[in-house]
Design a protein around this nucleic acid. Structure first.
Lengths: 139, 139
DNA sequence: TATTGTTATACTCTATAACTATA
DNA sequence: TATAGTTATAGAGTATAACAATA
């Protein structure tokens, strides 16, 4: 093992790169990328949220959020309605069609992650997730 | 804990994002990014390598490698000399100046990684590295 | 005045295809 | 005919600044 492949940054990047290539393959029939899938997942879990909410929680720039939501709305996966209590913002809701995409791809995505993490034992995979969550929470 | 922040892909991405922002800050005075630092590190550990060698091992496209090496050569961090045994390829070598940059930033980078991984105990950090290496090796 | 969302724009990073020079 | 490197170009993805509507 050499110095150049010992850094956490390098290792995280390569594992992620591998996952994202596979993610992209499975998501392309639905015309969304991994980030947009994440946004859809967030909206499902947080109905009536605003673009700002997603932007903050997922740490995605708000101008980038506009194009993500434009895209998801254009595909009929998400619905924008004005928030009556604050007409500057939207109430975002996932549509039935969007929910279908979410559900049909969930198994694929977890399977893809499992595939990339296959060199690890079950306890190791669980440990990795716990460790990553611990870091993410305090980010 | 909700569904949207439970995926390995999401978690890996966020941890990496945090690291890369800090990396970029520390490397910008030397006019290189994290990937170029990685290339420099590889050349130090593999003197007389070719652009193809780096391209394969670091899984970076060969056309992208051209601009990385152009950049590093322009800054005087790397030297291109023709390989006498195969004049299609180069012998790449790190310069004294390049070595200085590598050494002066090494502490910073490991410190940055430690900072992001601070929520983890020492054994957990070590475990994370072992787990990531295990996945990377079989990639 | 501050905030949500939008637009126009530019920048970074990377990939594709066609080229050259060597093998 | 294949390979290492190069160039021109185009495509993602993202960020900055200025703006409209609303608070």
């Amino acid at each position: 093992m050499e110095k150049w492949n010992q850094s956490y940054g390098f290792l995280l990047g390569k594992v992620l790169q591998k996952m994202e290539i596979k993610f992209a393959e499975g998501l392309s029939p639905f015309e969304i990328n991994a980030r947009q899938y994440g946004v859809l997942l967030f909206i499902e879990g947080n109905p009536h949220c605003s673009q700002k909410d997603i932007s903050e929680k997922l740490q995605i720039d708000r101008t980038t959020m506009v194009s993500h939501i434009d895209h998801l709305e254009g595909l009929g996966y998400v619905e924008r309605t004005k928030n009556p209590n604050d007409r500057r913002s939207y109430n975002l809701l996932i549509t039935a069609k969007g929910k279908d995409v979410l559900d049909s791809r969930w198994e694929f995505l977890t399977h893809t992650e499992a595939e990339v993490l296959a060199p690890l034992s079950e306890p190791e995979q669980q440990l990795l997730k716990e460790i990553l969550i611990k870091v993410w929470i305090t980010l």
